[in-house]
Write a protein that binds this DNA or RNA. Structure first.
Lengths: 213, 213
DNA sequence: TCATTAATAAAACGAACGTTCAATTCTTTC
DNA sequence: GAAAGAATTGAACGTTCGTTTTATTAATGA
């Protein structure tokens, strides 16, 4: 047999991406076989190769989309204000919202870097560095204007990112905690951690971003 | 050919464990083949099966040793004092020192849980929970005595652990930062994050633990 | 309606995988 | 110095892997 009724290239590719993200997040890139992925999509393994030349191309495509979506999300969420407290609050809220909404692709992008070729690894890491630089800039401005008391900018940035991204390891929806509740607590912890000046902190950006899973 | 001159069971097993920890940390459990491991040890693949019945038995053994070593390290590092600030300082110092010294096995224990059978996964997670409970107890006592201002104990504990363990992702020795320097900065960030009472914080435990890699 | 193209199935490829087994040699013990 | 045990080799087993090739059908456009 061959082409099946109702088959559509775009739909199939999207289904492959979604299924691959979920499978890799759950079992790992090496542990996921192309046959298993094809079975999840409801297609034969050979059909996958119409959309992705190799398994690694598929992985790289997922990671690239993830990193670009993260940068885009922050560009759109970034407030006009230049006040460090406002910027940092927005960064924390966006980071947590994005990573919870896309925890599967976050897992893929964070845990499967070693399966990329050197050139592709560099490409992804460059995007990651670009994102982290945003946070470092906020922290540096805050320290320069005495809005924050944080001493080592690099360490503070890494600590914050690890802390925030770590949410996806244990957080599950439908528990005692909502996304908004977790974000609120993490905002308080962040502000204390960087030694934010008390006083005029009340105008946080409180429009919680929404992302599709 | 068969038994080689100078061969020794204990030495071979130790060599297997070390090589496996490094290989799994670098390439992942699924990506490491038994032949590759054997090559690293300087032995034929079949020889591995004298020490570990299956590949998964090897992984589980590495993880079990890691978690038990972590708990033992904390038991020995835990100060006699009951003051929350002192206990938390000691916990942070021990955690960072241990995880930097054993970053390879930390990677294995944190990233390869999905390759364990359900029963073994439960066994490892139970040890992890035991360890995390130590931190939660410290935080709870600190909050009860107003030594800390942390509100949500569970979230604070998870945030701190993610933040501290995250050090192994980016920290490399021989850089601008020493283990002691990183620990110092993380201690300050931790104390601010939990809203530790200023004043009598000076008697931290400052005997940095040493672990073998 | 008929050629063209897009989308898939089915089968096969060689390579690599975890693991087993029999044979062989070193080491220890008496 | 011979017997017993420990340590390892080399070859092989069946399975699964990523990928390729070829054939076949569904949708599309003139």
């Amino acid at each position: 047999m061959a082409r099946t009724t109702g088959s559509d290239g775009e739909r199939t590719e999207a289904a492959i991406r979604d299924a691959a993200t979920a499978l890799i997040a759950r079992h790992g890139y090496e542990a996921m076989s192309m046959r298993q992925l094809a079975g999840e999509v409801g297609v034969q393994a050979a059909a996958l190769y119409r959309y992705f030349p190799t398994k690694e191309d598929l992985l790289f495509s997922l990671m690239l989309e993830h990193m670009e979506a993260l940068l885009t999300a922050w560009q759109e969420a970034r407030p006009a204000s230049t006040r460090p407290q406002v910027l940092l609050s927005a960064f924390v809220e966006n980071h947590i919202a994005f990573h919870i909404a896309r925890r599967h692709s976050t897992h893929v992008s964070n845990m499967e870097l070693r399966s990329l070729s050197p050139e592709r690894l560099t490409r992804i890491l460059k995007l990651r560095t670009t994102y982290e630089k945003e946070l470092r800039t906020i922290l540096r401005d805050g320290a320069a204007t005495d809005a924050f008391a944080a001493d080592d900018i690099e360490l503070t940035a890494m600590a914050l990112i690890q802390m925030m991204t770590g949410v996806i390891v244990w957080f599950r929806p439908d528990e005692r905690l909502s996304v908004a509740g977790v974000t609120e607590t993490y905002l308080r912890m962040t502000m204390r951690l960087v030694g934010a000046n008390e006083g005029r902190e009340e105008n946080h950006v409180h429009q919680h971003a929404e992302f599709r899973a």
